[in-house]
Simulated scan of single mutants.
Amino acid sequence: MTSGVTIGQAAAFVGVTVKTVRHYHQQGLVDEPQRDSSGYRRYGSTELLRLVQVRTLAAAGVPLAGIGPLLDADADRFADSLTVVARQLTERIADLTARLATLHRLAEGDRALLPERACTILDRMAGLGFGPDYVAAQREALVLARVLVPDGFDGFLTQLEHRMDDPEAVDLAKRGQEAETWDPDDPRIEELATAMADHFLANPELLGDPTSRRAWTKAPIQYRLINDHRGDQAPVSARLTALTEARLRSAGIPLPRR
């Protein structure tokens, strides 16, 4: 009577595929049994036990390269090796959890690319009545600023916080948003630019701290990229910004050249 089972039966008993069993053989994790008189390899209890052990460790996250030495180790080394594997799995779980959190935040757009402080500012803008297009444009500008001018990013956030705390600055910004409905040559744009520049000059904290301004002044190309973002979609805002900056430069405020 022929003893043992075929590779297909062995794979089914253990809960893996035939391809997996053959891969275990190729990796030297399970010895191939001898062929019987009919030319078939027959798997006995020893091979089946080894297959179960290998499959269990692999399913637990142990790399295949480490399974052989682990199974051949004594009890103390086996326990130590499992401790190492457990730590590696814990680190992987933490990494995957962080990635999952990022995916969840990506559902809210570019917020995954910004720190919580910046997200709070964006929420405040929406709460103050700024429209979704305006907030979206500010969000994109913040993402670009964080990457392109990292040394000036925190100062820029402080500047925005001061502006959100200033009712007149908020009102001027809303008027700037409304100005998008005006003709690009409307004389009110220059009047609004003058009002903005005058208010900023009267309240220097709205212009940012000197350290942050220096960081931006040293990055004129990056500044231009951020300032010109969406410029084709908001030509009045682009002109309003340029006019306001020109007045601030005339007053001695160091700003990058566009």
Rank of each mutant, 00 (worst) to 15 (best):
Q26C: 05
D133W: 07
A246Q: 14
R258M: 11
D80L: 14
G131Y: 04
A179K: 07
T181G: 10
T97G: 06
F153I: 06
A11S: 10
V14K: 01
D186P: 04
I7V: 15
A59I: 06
W182R: 15
Q53Y: 01
I253D: 10
A12K: 14
Q177A: 15
L49D: 14
H199V: 14
A242R: 15
L225F: 09
G15Y: 02
T97E: 15
G131V: 03
D209G: 14
L201V: 09
L142T: 01
A12N: 06
N203M: 05
L113N: 03
H229C: 07
E32N: 04
A59P: 01
F130V: 02
L148H: 04
N227P: 01
P235F: 06
R50N: 00
L207Q: 13
P69E: 10
M196D: 09
E180L: 03
V147K: 06
I67H: 00
H162Y: 04
S37I: 14
R99E: 11
V16P: 02
A251L: 06
S38Q: 09
A60T: 10
I221P: 07
I253N: 05
R92P: 05
S38V: 09
T2W: 05
E108T: 11
L114H: 02
R257Y: 08
V30P: 00
L100I: 08
R188I: 07
R42Y: 08
H162V: 11
E168F: 05
G68A: 15
V30F: 00
W216M: 15
A107P: 04
G176E: 10
Y134R: 11
D171W: 13
P204I: 03
D31H: 08
A141Q: 13
Q233R: 14
H104A: 13
A145C: 03
V62H: 01
G61V: 02
